[in-house]
Design a protein around this nucleic acid. Sequence first.
DNA 1: GTCTATAATTTGATAGAC
DNA 2: GTCTATCAAATTATAGAC
Lengths: 204, 204
Amino acid sequence: MSTKERIVEEALTLFSSRGYQGTSVKNIADAVGIKDSSLYKHFKSKKEIFETIVEEMARRMEAMSHTFGLPDDTTVEAAAFAYGVISVEELVELSRKVFLFYLQDPFAGRFRRMLTIEQYRDREIAAVYRKIYMEDSIRYQTVLFEEMIRQGVFREADARAMAINFYAPIFFLLNKYDSPECSVEDGLEELERQVREFARIYHK
Amino acid sequence: MSTKERIVEEALTLFSSRGYQGTSVKNIADAVGIKDSSLYKHFKSKKEIFETIVEEMARRMEAMSHTFGLPDDTTVEAAAFAYGVISVEELVELSRKVFLFYLQDPFAGRFRRMLTIEQYRDREIAAVYRKIYMEDSIRYQTVLFEEMIRQGVFREADARAMAINFYAPIFFLLNKYDSPECSVEDGLEELERQVREFARIYHK
DNA sequence: GTCTATAATTTGATAGAC
DNA sequence: GTCTATCAAATTATAGAC
């Protein structure tokens, strides 16, 4: 891993626990093992490190979408169709994947925490936060459930309300089990209970 | 309002948008309209201002519980019994109250934002955050729904899963409509849709 | 691409006049 | 309880040697 990559790595760790303003350039340099002045050979400012992290996340989100089979904006209809034949067990598995990705993926977990911290100081950051964890998630799952209702997997219902009823508990448990104090296993167990209750309600 | 109260007031506004570390003592003093050195006649340190805010919130939460008829730890069973006769309309009204309190109450809204920002840097803060917005909320509503099932208002179901299905969308929409960019009316509308879907599912 | 040295500013906090 | 003056430390960032 190059020094530049290590800077991004350590900066994300620090930003995601102590916040942008709570992290000094020296903190980052110390974590990397170089002097703070050396850091300026890789980035022209502290702000540029932050912006690089946001860009890097956008790149990784796209890559992950492909790996997980989660669709990006352009293929959402196609994916909804593919997921149309999903079973309850597959729905449990999907929820586990989303949950563990946002909670534990070495980059995604810290990135989510960083945005959570920084959302109130900058409108642009707030917009990115809402887009990723609210609007995109709900929009995707609404299309998914619309298609699944059409295919007769789920009962007739308000697809958007369904999407929120599916995703809001994931979001809630994500925030609840975010602390190192909480066991991920407990989170997964509570999540599975919730998804099974969801399936019990809506599944035909 | 005394100078001490105005310091707490302005500090909370700044902490809740820029974070504790992102706010300097001078920022607070400027907002109050005094010199930073004068501030030390009221508080011995910046940290003491933060701690005063947390204590003040605990006091206000208790006061609000009485105003709203929301129970504290000791009276939860009694309140569940009182709410036992609730109607769907009353459930909509309860959700609106909780939503607007956490979002718009001049103290509670900023306090929630502050804890959201600061939760990752301090385990004690994280515990307070989880207690207020997760554990206490879910525990209270679980008892509430248990009682309502017992009284035949709701169908037989897992009361804890119900509580999460009721509260998680409130929590999700709270975070979504937290930005000044979003209209509170849209949030309330989406909330009501969600509560009506909840009632449709569980109400007898 | 790392280091030392340094600049300019800001930080949290104190002392003491009024 | 406000102010001015001051402090030591930390902050972001640059210059220049190697």
